[in-house]
Amino acid sequence: MARFGMVIDTKKCVGCMDCVVACKTENNVPEGLNRDWIVQDVKGTYPTLNMQIRTERCNHCDNPPCVYCCPCGASHIHELGGVVLVYHDKCSGCKACMAACPYDARFIHPDGYANKCTFCIHRVENGMDPACVSVCPTHCMYFGDLDDPNSELNKLLNSRKHRALITEAGTKPQIFYLD
């Protein structure tokens, strides 16, 4: 079994938002809404500053509260790589999943259903990287199988300091950020 995830090298990311634009064109994300976004996290006082830049999206959690709380069975874990997806035609738009997601990764599509990052499953199934990964001009994003000990992801995780976001919430996020 595969477990899809991402490793993102914050050392290289410049916060250019190419990943955001690419997601929008690839997936036709409606105007004014984003499946992925950039966070600039600045610490210190001028001129002694430290800034981490992160590209964020749904973490495709291994323990996804958005799936557990869904009253309609619309939010579900896809067999392929544990990707968390939503059946548009089962969703009542109750927003429970939005309340349940600590990352605020979901939104309501103008057509009424809950929507979010799909890990570009339609591309991954065809052997391609997600759109955001394949566009990134700094090559700072890596997509692959976390269950495969030989994957690029695990090589990076084994060799570099990293963290995942809001692990306290117990969701077991599958996106890791290299320092």
Binding site: A2, N27, N28, L80, L85, T118, H122, E125, G127
Partner: peptide, 10 residues
């Protein structure tokens, strides 16, 4: 895992 299917043709 990387298996072609017609799933999720957004």
């Amino acid at each position: 895992f990387v298996k072609k299917s017609n799933a999720f043709f957004e």
